[in-house]
């Protein structure tokens, strides 16, 4: 166990845990977007920044990735932290005007409007949760983050149908901004704009549509392969 201090409160927390884990366990709220318990940290959205005292002075670090250490002093909502979060949210409001969660989060910091000219549409905040889930949890590796900088996007290879997708819907389930949308039309399940289409059957138990057994690359075949 190590002793740390969050917002003036002395705490004893588990060694090797992150600031975020220590804060959440002890009831301090820190917003997150790209962090997911099942996937670990990625450190991309920066919304979880907190202020710590480091040898080179007071700095902001991503609490999801920063490990606690003896004597660490953390501020989760100093003015500097709030300003950084507000900037991030204001940028995201402009880049992803259709992402509800961003609007809600921004409103929590008193932000209703953005000073930057907003994009026409957009929900994806490039948190990489879908990609990491597809590779690390599902093991399908159907999508990835392509290109870089302002052109970065989530996509399967060549932005078209991919046989690697097993239509499991994990990406859709885990996406924090509902940017991925699996639609079921007339027993055809279509994934987001990737146009991967799969025949489905209605499940007797849950009454949802799932991918048909016959289709190569479907969930069932894939599970069989695993076994």
């Amino acid at each position: 166990m190590v002793n740390i201090n969050i917002n003036g409160q002395d705490l004893t927390v588990r060694e090797n845990c992150t600031i975020l884990e220590a804060a959440l366990i002890n009831g301090f709220y820190i917003p997150t977007l790209c962090y997911h318990e099942a996937l670990g940290f990625y450190g991309a959205c920066r919304i979880c920044v907190v202020e710590i005292a480091a040898p080179r002075g007071q700095i902001l670090v991503a609490s999801c990735a920063y490990p606690v250490s003896e004597g660490l002093i953390v501020k989760t909502d100093s003015e500097r932290v709030i300003n950084a979060r507000k900037l991030i949210l204001e940028l995201l409001l402009a880049d992803c005007p259709d992402a509800e969660i961003i609007k809600i989060m921004a409103a929590r910091y008193g932000l209703i409007e953005t000073r930057f000219p907003p994009e026409e549409e957009g929900k994806c905040i490039l948190c990489g949760i879908c990609v990491r889930a597809c590779h690390n949890l599902v093991g399908a590796g159907a999508i990835s983050l392509i290109k870089r900088g302002k052109n970065k996007a989530v996509s399967p290879p060549y932005e078209s149908v991919t046989s690697a997708c097993i239509s499991c819907g994990t990406c859709e389930t885990m996406c924090p901004t509902r940017a991925i949308d699996i639609k079921v039309f007339d027993r055809i399940k279509s994934l987001h704009e990737y146009e991967g289409r799969f025949h489905t059957q209605r499940c007797n138990i849950c009454s949802k549509y799932h991918v048909d057994n016959e289709k190569p690359g479907s969930v069932n075949n894939w599970i069989e392969e695993l076994q």
Binding site: S144, I146, P156
Partner: peptide
């Protein structure tokens, strides 16, 4: 033995 999506990601990065 890596997903094509990974190769594509590198080729476009």
């Amino acid at each position: 033995n890596i997903p094509a999506a990974k190769v594509y990601s590198i080729a476009t990065f």
